[in-house]
Design a protein around this nucleic acid. Structure first.
Length: 660
DNA sequence: CTTAGGG
DNA sequence: CCCTAAG
């Protein structure tokens, strides 16, 4: 029995999200092969090993993908097909070769007991076959076959002393006994390493031989029947050279690594992929794999370990029962971990170890996050669809809410923070830089620079930066900056004032002007509010600049002149001096003004009945705003009538005449 | 990039 | 104020 699986080999260890993503979208498109994440086509051999697909097979599969994506099945590449499969099967609720959609969360969560049992049965069946074939293979394998089934003592003993005594319960609960010996093992004992390398092997020499002499004992018992193969190789006893050979045999390529430990580990990993590692062992001798009788540490495993493995497998199923897709995913992630370092064969043990440790972390981090996202998603799932980007491991740095600042350090205005972003489960800290101040003023600054054509590259950038950050210009920085900044405000205010005066000298506005003049930000220096920490989260606005009266007036002016909506124009002409205040700001302010003007209309007539601190905007201005609004049909349907009569006519006319 | 609107 | 969708 052969199942074509598609294994996702990711060098970045990103698994959870990408995995899902793919299954949801990318997979269904023919071109998904070209996806950044490299897919490796692998065959699941009867024994549950992952065997690299031959080119032919690859082609086939590609064809399949194009025509019928449904024939392939994505599995978490644990490098241990069976485990993955069982996992998948259980998680998807559909026995085999189901469409990628089958992996969707919804499906997962819908798994119910009935499905589960069906699945289990399927698994059972599959395992049965698998076992059978495995036996055949074992019986027929020639010595120098590449797929050596070895066992490393260290692993034997190490891997199996976990998993308490849940076995019985589980066993009784589900009839998975058969599956136990092989299928599940992979899940349990993966010490998180590069299993994907298995996939790189060239075409296996040991194709399953159909119809070969059947072996004894069914594999139906919870106890592996490979007893005859008992024994194991102690990699420890091998020389480097031998280890190299084993390595090659295992992974299908040479390695230059001289580190014995590393080699052993690697090999062990590779071999662990096979389902029945614990039962078969060979030794390498003279370029041959020799089965070696040897019963020590692993003997006792056969019985016990199987049960334990079973446990693991069942656990997965139980997750299913709980219909917690996230948990399932966690398993999948766990399984897929090993991939991260693949291809980087030339590592040393230390690195490998480190990788493993990191991997260990990886298991959790992404999961956690993933869960979070899941929750979030599910929350909002009812409403709208989440943007595709959200599911991708690498998300735009912009999204602030998702950032997890781990460390912050300030660097000349830029804040460097590393966020603990699980880059697809890598749990790697990636530094991200964002500006404290958004980049709005840039344009203006440039203009400024032009003014004083002092600008050398350096200066320019520097100034720019300074302004950018936040125009905290006044003090610290060099004369340059000061100059620059200062220059900014100067020209404009006068300009505008002049205009104002000229245009509406007689109006109430004119009166107000006096007031305005006081506060106008003539000196840009006045406000550098930008980043206000405010201890416990008091000040919200990072880049908040209070609107001054003069600004408001200018805005109003501008609106009257150019009409609401032409914010960029207004900004350019009336707010040239104010480097901050984007057109958006203007718009927003206008919006607010409108709101304000119409909101409080009933209360105050011509008088500035400002309550207290909050509303510095003179009634006059509001009035004008209202007028303009009405003029331009921006007025909300209601409210319009009353006010106009009161003070409107004149000013409206004036406005019109004046500017139009 | 600008505009418009929601948060 | 910030962000984002549109044009």
């Amino acid at each position: 029995m052969e199942i074509v699986v598609e294994v996702e080999v990711s060098n970045e260890g990103k698994f959870d999200e990408t995995g899902l993503e793919k299954s949801n979208s990318a997979i269904s498109s023919p071109k998904h092969v070209a996806d950044p994440v490299v897919y490796k086509l692998v065959r699941v051999e009867g024994d549950g090993r992952l065997v690299p697909a031959t080119d032919d097979e690859l082609m086939e599969v590609e064809g399949l993908l194009e025509n019928e994506n449904r024939e392939t099945h994505i599995i978490a590449d644990t490098g241990q097909a069976l485990g993955s499969i069982s996992n998948e099967v259980s998680s998807s609720g559909m026995p085999q070769l189901e469409s990628s959609e089958g992996l969707s969360q919804s499906e997962n969560t819908e798994a119910d007991a009935g499905k589960l049992s069906a699945r289990l049965e399927y698994i059972e069946e599959m395992l049965h076959k698998v076992k059978h074939e495995e036996r055949l293979r074992l019986a027929c394998r020639s010595p120098d076959h590449s797929s050596a089934y070895m066992n490393v003592d260290s692993h034997c003993s190490k891997q199996h002393d976990k998993l308490p005594g849940i076995d019985e319960k589980l066993q009784s609960q589900i009839h998975l006994q058969e599956m136990a010996p092989c299928g599940t093992q992979s899940l349990s004992d993966n010490p998180v390493t590069q299993s994907g390398s298995v996939g790189e092997r060239s075409k296996p020499l040991d194709e399953p031989i159909e119809g070969g002499s059947s072996t004894s004992a069914g594999c139906t018992s919870s106890k592996p029947d490979f007893s005859k193969l008992k024994g194991e190789v102690c990699l420890d006893n091998l020389s480097i050279k031998e280890l190299h050979e084993v390595f090659k045999a295992t992974f299908g390529r040479d390695t230059t690594v001289k580190d014995k430990q590393w080699l052993k580990r690697r090999i062990a990993m590779g071999l662990t992929n096979s389902c029945d590692v614990s039962t078969t062992t060979f030794v390498i001798k003279d370029n041959k794999l020799v089965k070696k009788g040897n019963e020590d540490s692993c003997n006792n495993m056969n019985g016990a370990s199987s049960k334990r493995h079973l446990t693991v497998g069942v656990e997965n199923c139980q997750d299913l029962l709980n219909s917690h897709s996230s948990q399932i995913d966690e398993h999948r992630i766990t399984a897929g971990l090993g991939l991260g370092k693949d291809g980087l064969e030339n590592n040393y043990a230390s690195e490998d170890l480190a990788a493993e440790q990191r991997a260990a972390k990886r298991v959790r981090k992404p999961t956690k996050r993933y869960i979070e996202e899941l929750e979030a998603d599910s929350k909002e799932s009812s409403g709208r669809l989440i943007s595709p980007a959200k599911n991708i491991g690498i998300r735009p740095l912009g999204s602030k809410s998702h950032d997890r600042p781990a460390t912050n350090s300030s660097l000349d205005g830029r804040t460097v923070i590393t966020r603990l972003d699980s880059l697809g489960g890598s749990g790697i800290q990636i530094p991200c830089v964002y500006r404290v101040r958004r980049s709005r003023p840039r344009k203006n600054v440039m203009a400024l620079l032009r003014f004083h054509h002092s600008g050398m590259g350096m200066t320019a950038t520097f100034v720019k930066k300074g302004l950018d950050e936040h125009s905290s210009q006044m003090d610290s920085s060099s004369g340059n900056k000061d100059l620059e900044t200062r220059s900014t405000p100067e020209p404009a205010p006068q300009q505008s004032v002049g205009e104002l005066k000229k245009e509406r000298p007689s109006t109430e506005l004119g009166q107000t002007m006096g007031l305005q003049r006081v506060d106008p930000p003539g000196d840009s220096s006045d406000d550098n509010v930008a980043t206000v920490p405010t201890a416990k989260g008091g000040t919200r606005r990072k880049h908040h600049r209070a609107w001054t009266l003069s600004e408001v007036m200018k805005l109003v002016e501008g609106v009257s002149k150019y009409g609401a909506g032409r914010w960029s124009e207004i900004k350019r002409l009336a707010f040239a001096s104010y480097s901050y205040r984007t057109s958006v700001d203007l718009k927003d302010k206008w919006r607010n003004l409108l709101k304000a003007s119409f909101a409080q209309t009933p209360m105050d007539k011509g008088v500035n009945s400002r309550k207290h601190p909050s509303m510095p905007i003179p009634a006059a201005i509001l009035l004008r705003v209202r007028e303009l609004a009405e003029m331009q049909a921006q007025v909300p349907p209601n409210l319009s009538a009353s006010k106009q009569a009161a003070c409107g006519g004149r000013s409206v006319n004036e406005t019109k005449s004046g500017y139009l």
